[in-house]
Design a protein around this nucleic acid. Structure first.
Ligand code: ZN
Ligand code: ZN
Ligand code: ZN
Ligand code: ZN
Lengths: 133, 133
DNA sequence: CTCTAAAACGTTATATTATTACATACTGTT
DNA sequence: AACAGTATGTAATAATATAACGTTTTAGAG
């Protein structure tokens, strides 16, 4: 018996916005998204932000905090949606989701000196990509 | 002969804003800073943002990206100002700069599969602090 | 000291990112 | 049908950040 996954059925707005982000080759900002979905009837910021919040919550997308931009999760059925690692080129701003099991495990196990146990982390690496080097 | 350090002499606005952040027990947002330094003659956002940019650049403060807030660096003469790690309580929002040499070294050495070499990173851990647990 | 270039400053306006508030509609369950 | 929970639509506004421009101060070179 294979393990069952509860389907995450997206609502109309969530689906529209996820599709846009998912097919984009670069992170999208909220107002870029808004502009691009107005023809589909999504006219106001709260509609976009609500969908984004939900999509982040269920791990379909991630927010690149240093850019205020959103990317689709590339780890399908992502088990590390609350443990994200990105590489960001400081020149061309290309962004990749790093999926390195060792690194993720290392960070997931990390405890600080105050005995604080972490549930979630976000790591953003900056450098120059192959092209820009 | 002790190693010489180039003094980072702060300008007037930089010093005012650094003092405020440095004595604060919590991360400060730009407009909170603005409000608090108006009596000292700093009246407009660009003055605050310029000082913040510079202070970040020289490593005296760090930006907590997920909060759009700024904290003073607690690692005096911080050698890892471009390699920051924070722990953030999701409940009370208390923030600490984690200084764990092993972790910093591990991350500084990390190379991704694309052969991208990183110059800088920012890691934010989220969880519940002792009090809030 | 004088000249110069870079850095810092002051100010106004504006751009960008995100939320509040409230009314309405849809979804699945009892 | 009644209910609770989720999602939607809309207007207004809050919060965060930058552009643009002219002036002043600072730090070094000659
Ligand atoms: Zn992911
Ligand atoms: Zn690049
Ligand atoms: Zn530091
Ligand atoms: Zn706490």
């Amino acid at each position: 018996m294979t393990k069952m996954h509860k389907e995450n059925i997206l609502s109309k707005n969530q689906q529209i916005i996820f599709n846009l982000i998912n097919k984009s080759s670069e992170p999208l900002k909220a107002y870029t998204i808004l502009f691009n979905v107005q023809k589909k009837g999504i006219k106001a910021p709260p509609q976009v932000y609500r969908a984004l919040d939900k999509l982040v919550e269920i791990g379909k997308i991630h927010k690149i905090e240093s850019k205020n931009a959103f990317v689709a999760c590339k780890n399908s059925n992502c088990e590390i949606s609350k443990a994200t690692v990105f590489s960001i080129c400081e020149n061309c701003e290309i962004i990749d989701e790093v999926s390195d099991v060792k690194l993720s495990k290392y960070l997931s196990k990390f405890n600080d000196k105050n005995g604080m146990k972490f549930k979630r982390f976000n790591l953003e690496f900056f450098g120059l990509c192959k092209k820009c080097k």
